[in-house]
Design a protein around this nucleic acid. Structure first.
Lengths: 342, 342
DNA sequence: TTGTATGCGTTATCAG
DNA sequence: CTGATAACGCATACAA
């Protein structure tokens, strides 16, 4: 006999009060002490727990925020996700997840349905680029608060959260310069990626200040942030003798992809070549040599993203915060050695 | 002027029919052709889209399935997640995600709230172990269909989906034997993990059949599936000359953790030691040497998990399927070399 | 084939 | 301080 779940009406009846009183009790509004005690008792013995669906319908909200990402298998993203979860768990709201590239090709219909069907109270879009334009437009149309995390391209339709990539670039430059490197290279992600651009700019500035050369032939964009782009870049760069003693990559995935090919070809790191990445993904710490990188406070950024969403109404203008980034030194960087011919 | 969102009532009024007719139209029930056309038109111009919350309330369901995992940063899990998303996207349902170890220590309250508050139509728990017992009990109590993916320990409270680890173990044994290895070792995850036990058993059986020794001193359990456990194991095993020419690990994370330490100490792989893992996580493909491993059809398992959830009522007994696993050969395995003294 | 009436479980606005 | 009662937006018997 599957006993039916108790509702607020059941509780009210059992306690001999009106449903509205129970509701008030549930929401911490005023009820007399004796009634409160009785209600607590009844609810306990009945094992009552209110219906989220009904509550949300009544409140006119959805109780869910949406997260739309290229792929939920991206380790950079999962760090952010943890932060999002963390903050959400304190706000009795939950998250809906959608990968935009689930079956190989881009498809944002699910997210479009979310916002058209008013299924979400807010939207978080990490690493958005031009192709998310329609999505963001729909979001502002439907008045669903949106926050972009580390968008590839510039937008003024939503709040933005991103790391302080300019300073991060400078930090990397300092690190390399103080190790004694005189000529370094840079390989970014997509050319249009703001993160890559800022990282490069910071790197370039500080390098120049330190009298270090940023070699033009070893400075490029890989077209993507995927590891495969890093391996392709490696195949090209390592065809001929190295011009540089250190390479800085747009992110860890690129760096790791590069390192695999480099090791395969006998390039010893950091002796022949120092490597630096960005993002501090787990794979970098597991590699040998461990990948020197720059960490962003992803969890904090995730938390702040949902915080902003829940306070969106009170904000006049969406904030655009730059989070501090921290150099994580591992074995892939060291003093420069002689150049190598692979 | 934020135009108010149209409801089913708005549509009915605009079309000059009753709401029930609109509802019928929406759900594909019978409506006359002219009315249907008019409705389609009105809905289009109004930009109407029905409220999920209200629909679910009326239907008595939640429209969400819950996924409770140790950490959503686990790359093994994110593969599963992709499959879950994939299937969910075809069923107009969404997923709620909760990490059980969000802040370092175990806390399942959020998930308990889900099932107590009837917020989910089903529950997926990957890699469950003893500590999830209370959770599963609550789930059966509340009649929420549950499916366990690759549970560490045996349970009879829910449906189970897992890979065919026995055969996988045999496959690895064959691979190693045919490469010419004569003495191999095994390092599993937690001792109680069924996956590790099965993988070991399959390995042992086939090894014996092939006349290959499974060295007892190099056969152990690392206590966890985390990479750190692999590094600890490496530090211990590599203290003295190796007794084996190949090591099989309970999963890729352990193997990668081991490899890092091994490379650090100058062990050349596969020349000095061949390495095999399980799970085929991305980091293994990026390492050098690339990690030979056994892949599970994680996406398919994820899809099937939600399929089961949605058909739970029609099933008499929960199925417990073993999914085929596939050897992925990379550079970390090769013919045995001479033993090495690190 | 279509309309009417009722229920889903809460919250909020009123009177009392 | 508490109790009716009207939303919330949709689905579904049942009646017409």
């Amino acid at each position: 006999m599957p006993k039916k779940k108790p509702t607020i009406t059941t509780v009210a009846a059992a306690a001999g009060v009106a449903v509205s009183t129970v509701s008030r009790y549930l929401n911490g509004h005023y009820v007399s002490r004796p009634v409160r005690a009785r209600l607590a008792d009844v609810i306990e013995t009945l094992g009552y727990s209110r219906s989220w669906t009904a509550r949300n319908l009544s409140l006119g909200r959805k109780g869910c925020i949406g997260v739309a990402v290229d792929s939920s298998e991206d380790p950079w993203f999962t760090q952010l996700l943890t932060g999002i979860e963390e903050e959400l768990s304190t706000r009795d709201a939950s998250l809906m997840l959608a990968s935009l590239e689930l079956r190989g090709n881009y498809d944002a219909r699910i997210v479009q349905d979310w916002i058209r069907g008013r299924r979400i109270d807010g939207l978080i879009v990490p690493k958005s680029s031009q192709r998310e334009h329609a999505l963001l437009e729909a979001a502002v149309d439907a008045q669903v608060p949106t926050v972009l995390v580390a968008p590839h391209e510039i937008v003024r339709m939503a709040a933005v959260i991103r790391g302080d990539n300019l300073t991060a670039g400078r930090t990397v430059a300092s690190h390399l310069a103080s190790l004694g490197h005189k000529v370094v290279g840079f390989a970014g992600g997509p050319r249009y990626s703001i993160d890559s651009q800022h990282r490069l700019r910071g790197l370039r500035e500080e390098l120049r200040r330190r009298g270090v050369t940023l070699h033009p032939r070893a400075t490029a964009f890989c077209g993507s942030y995927q590891a495969e782009a890093g391996t392709r870049f490696a195949q090209k760069l390592l065809e001929r003798p190295l011009d540089v003693t250190a390479m800085v990559f747009g992110n860890d995935a690129l760096a790791l992809g590069f390192m695999r090919v480099a090791q395969q070809r006998g390039v010893r790191m950091p002796r022949d070549l120092s490597i630096v990445g960005f993002d501090n993904i787990a794979a970098g710490a597991l590699a040998w040599p461990g990948l020197t990188t720059v960490a962003q406070p992803m969890r904090e950024m995730g938390r702040d993203a949902v915080r902003y969403l829940f306070e969106a109404s009170s904000h006049r203008k969406p904030p655009s915060i730059d989070y501090p980034m921290e150099l994580v030194m591992r074995e892939s960087t060291g003093p420069p050695g002689r150049n190598v011919t692979p």
